[in-house]
Simulated scan of single mutants.
Amino acid sequence: MKIFGPLYERALKWASHERAPTYLTVLSFIEAIIFPVMPEVMLAPMCVAQPKRGWWFATLSLAGSLAGALVGYALGHFAFEAVKPLLAAMGMLPAIESGIAVVQEKMAESPWAVFTFLVLGGFMPIPMKVFTWASGIVGVPMLQYVLSMIIGRGKRVYLLAAVIRIGGPRAELALRRWIEPLGWVATGLVVLLVGVLVWRAKFA
């Protein structure tokens, strides 16, 4: 069953639209809160089409992600209990609760331990929304939270823009070819990580 390929093809259509920069920003914003498709699948073909504007596209994606991260934090902090049934129906609740356990563990060490974890988490194949909601629920200090979101997501989008600029169309073709297996591998890693976190929360 192919899931990530069709999603990628849809993102490619968005990328060719004249309002693609707006779509990218909105996609980045929504992905940080609830949407399952990472904005990189739209950022990559946009960087291929206009490599000289790749840094600008990456900046737009980062700005959208940061705005979404603030909304996700606020929702987690103020509305988590109210939206728990919705998150459970969408299958997001186990991952968020596991994220809460890890963020709480890091908070017990220090706010900067949380900062380091979130920075590293921004480069993992884990949906950003897990971290944004969990951080709001736990109450991660805003300074460490915002800095970690900027660095964690920023290094992803700017690295992608740099790879596309250097690799050119071949990089985008490779992404198209491998998007399906990469998507399933990333999903498997997320499921594995969630399982480990749940096991640790229950038996640690």
Rank of each mutant, 00 (worst) to 15 (best):
S65N: 14
G91D: 01
L118E: 05
V114Q: 06
A95H: 06
G139N: 06
I164G: 01
R170T: 10
A79T: 05
Q104F: 00
G68E: 09
W56Q: 14
Q50D: 15
P127E: 01
A161S: 14
R53D: 13
A161L: 07
A171T: 15
A174V: 11
P125N: 01
V157E: 03
I164D: 00
V71P: 09
V140G: 03
A101V: 02
S110M: 09
G64N: 07
E97N: 10
G76K: 05
R53N: 13
E105T: 13
G76Y: 09
F123V: 15
V146D: 03
K129C: 00
A44S: 11
F131N: 12
W56G: 12
G76C: 05
I96S: 06
P111G: 06
G139D: 05
A174M: 14
E109F: 09
M92F: 12
T116D: 10
I150M: 14
L143T: 12
E105C: 02
S110P: 02
R176M: 10
G152S: 07
R177P: 07
L147M: 14
F80D: 03
S98C: 06
G72C: 10
I150K: 05
V130F: 01
G68M: 10
R177D: 06
I150H: 04
Q50C: 03
I100L: 12
M107V: 04
R165V: 01
A67N: 02
L120Q: 04
M142G: 00
F123C: 15
F57T: 05
T59W: 13
G168T: 08
Y73D: 05
I126Q: 03
A162M: 13
L60F: 14
P51D: 08
F117Y: 15
F117I: 04
G122H: 08
L43W: 10
P85M: 04
P127M: 01
G64K: 08
Q144N: 08
Q144F: 00
S110E: 10
A95S: 13
V48C: 11
R177S: 07
V83C: 06
A95N: 04
Y73L: 03
K155D: 12
P169D: 09
P85T: 03
T116L: 15
